[in-house]
């Protein structure tokens, strides 16, 4: 909770002026305040001082995400995943384990698939990031997105953005030459619904199509 709150405090209000997400956050915060004993509120206040100090420790960051340039000021401890989700309202990239074990947060940095939960945002200064939001060309879905729909490569869909970003990387890296190879090189993306067979089919189909990804 404490961590979440500190992110909320960093947020740019304009992204959060509407929507269910915001309502839920505000209402749960109000509920929390109402039931919080006074001595804890006092502690929260002194934490605010720390945040004020933290403000001066922010670093400038300029990155390009899905073709849009961002000039930001961030704390060095902010991961790329948290920056995108909490400060830029790019929630397509999912937070699964937050420890590099599930692959839900997979994005491309300069075209290579990496885990955004283990990437400090300050370390991708000047780089080009692509997330699942950046794949479609207007209404035209990316071939991998089309293939996931065609082959029913998901059930609940939570791991899907990571699966799709990873799948594109798998083909680009030249490791989608057989079902076994696809399984091995996609093993960093966990799907608790067990949609694996259809994910493999989707990737094999795109690979067969031979398009440049």
């Amino acid at each position: 909770m404490a961590q979440k709150k500190s992110f909320n405090d960093q947020q740019d209000d304009k992204h959060y002026s509407e929507g269910r997400r915001n309502f839920l956050k505000q209402s749960s915060l109000l509920t929390a305040l109402a039931i919080t004993p006074p001595y804890l509120l006092k502690a929260a206040e002194s934490e605010l001082d720390e945040k004020a100090a933290g403000y001066f420790e922010k670093m400038p960051l300029s990155i390009e995400i899905n073709g849009v340039n961002h000039k930001l000021s961030i704390e060095p401890r902010t991961t790329l995943l948290d920056l995108m989700r909490e400060q830029l309202a790019l929630t397509g990239t999912k937070k699964g384990c937050d420890h590099g074990q599930c692959g839900a947060c997979t994005v491309h940095v300069d075209g290579n698939r990496v885990l955004s939960c283990l990437t400090l945002a300050v370390m991708v200064e000047g780089k080009k990031i692509t997330t699942v939001e950046g794949l479609a060309d207007g209404d035209q879905l990316h071939p991998m997105q089309e293939a996931f729909i065609k082959h029913d490569g998901f059930q609940c869909g939570y791991c899907t953005p990571g699966q799709i970003m990873s799948a594109i990387g798998c083909i680009r890296e030249g490791h989608a030459n057989s079902d076994d190879e696809i399984r091995e090189y996609m093993s960093g993306n966990i799907c608790r619904c067990g949609a694996y067979p259809n994910i493999v089919k989707a990737i094999a189909d795109v690979k067969k199509g031979g398009q440049k990804l």
């Binding site: 885990l115 990873s166 990387g169 996609m186 960093g188």
Partner: peptide, 8 residues
Amino acid sequence: ASAQLRNM
């Protein structure tokens, strides 16, 4: 590790 981790 995994392909993503090996890229980092």
